[in-house]
Simulated assay, not measured.
Amino acid sequence: MKLENIFNEYLTRSEQIIISQKATKEIAKSEIEKLIKLKEKTELKLSENKSNHTTYFFFIQDAKTGEIERYSTNKKTLEDKIKDVFLQQNRQYQWALSESYEIFKDYVISIYAYMGFTDRNKWPLKDFGTILFSELENKNFDYFIKQAQIKKDIPESILNRIRATYPEYKIIESNNKLEKNLLLEIILIEHLRHLIVHCQGMTTDKTGIINNILKKAGLWNNGKNNENYDYISSFFGVKSLNNTINLLEIEQQNETGFPNKYFDVLGNLINSLTSVSYLIYSEIKKETSG
């Protein structure tokens, strides 16, 4: 297995996430535009005493009798429907981030397998399992993949090994031209992914989650680092969505006060993972070509 192939596979899979994000955004935009037009038409007809509500009926089938009974009725306004579109878009963005993190983990595993396959000294002895060192000569790349996959605390344990093996990676991780703490980004995404997969993207203890992220990233500082706290908090919604992960684009205004562009929250997080992946690739490639 070539190093370039590992990195290219990661890029290909990540590109599909970005393409999917753009498609999701366009679908949501189109649906909202339709609802806004419908809302305008409905408001013109309100003088005729016509309702702007849509009623939804929900049914349940009794397994004993086979009969179908209505168990709920839900009335939604057009404003409710617009909000639902945004919520659904956000939920799809959450799953996109989760998938992006899984792709990153797969990449880190493959990279670690490559490290052990090309230089056995880069792995601690425990990672080889019970095999005799003399037997490694006959092992192919798949063996190293399988051993890397059973390593505990992935990707953290592998990234720690990379930091120890490639000191410059560790330096650039926290001091770079992107002005990002990439270690914090990885840990942040890891925690967001956990909430997305296990808690529907919500938490009952946002403060505790943020503090755990800061502690794991070595940025706790007794809770006094408001800049990092506020940064992590910005990935949650406001008001009724205060405890919900919000990855939708943020509208930004220019000096005239008019909106001129959007900040791509999800795309920025995915780019952080891509930057880390490229940095790892570059450090290993520099060593092998040097």
Results as ranks from 00 to 15, higher is better:
K64W: 00
I27V: 14
E48Q: 09
F57H: 15
T54N: 10
S47L: 10
T24W: 03
E26D: 06
Q21M: 12
K39N: 05
A23R: 05
L35K: 01
I60N: 15
K39Y: 11
L44S: 06
T55P: 06
T55E: 15
N49R: 13
S30Y: 07
H53Y: 07
N49F: 03
L35Y: 00
A28T: 03
G66N: 07
S30F: 07
I32R: 02
L35C: 01
F58Q: 04
A63T: 15
F59Y: 13
K64R: 07
K45W: 10
K50N: 10
G66F: 01
K34E: 00
N52P: 15
T54I: 05
A28R: 02
A63Y: 14
N49E: 03
I27R: 06
N49Q: 14
Q21F: 08
K37Q: 12
N49I: 02
H53L: 10
Q61H: 12
E67S: 11
K25R: 09
K34C: 05
K64F: 04
E48A: 15
K34N: 04
K29A: 10
A63L: 15
Q61L: 09
I36Q: 10
A28H: 02
I27M: 13
T65P: 00
E33K: 14
I32F: 03
E33T: 08
T65E: 00
E26W: 15
E40G: 07
F59A: 10
K25N: 04
T42M: 12
A63N: 15
E26V: 11
F58M: 06
E40W: 14
S47R: 11
E31D: 12
S30D: 08
K34F: 11
A28I: 08
H53Q: 04
K50S: 12
K64I: 04
F58L: 02
A23D: 08
L38Q: 02
S20N: 01
K29G: 01
N52W: 14
Y56C: 05
T65K: 08
G66T: 01
L44A: 08
K45V: 12
E48H: 04
T42K: 13
T54V: 12
K22N: 06
S51Y: 00
T55N: 13
K29C: 09
I32E: 07
E31H: 04
T24N: 07
E26R: 15
E43I: 11
K41E: 13
T54A: 08
T24S: 08
L44N: 08
T65F: 01
G66V: 01
S47H: 06
Q61G: 05
A23K: 14
T55W: 12
F58G: 09
K25E: 00
E43R: 15
F57K: 14
K45T: 04
S30M: 07
E26F: 14
T54H: 05
K50G: 10
T55M: 13
F57V: 11
N52E: 15
K25C: 02
N49S: 13
F58V: 01
T65H: 01
D62S: 12
K22V: 02
K37I: 05
K22F: 04
A28V: 09
Q61Y: 06
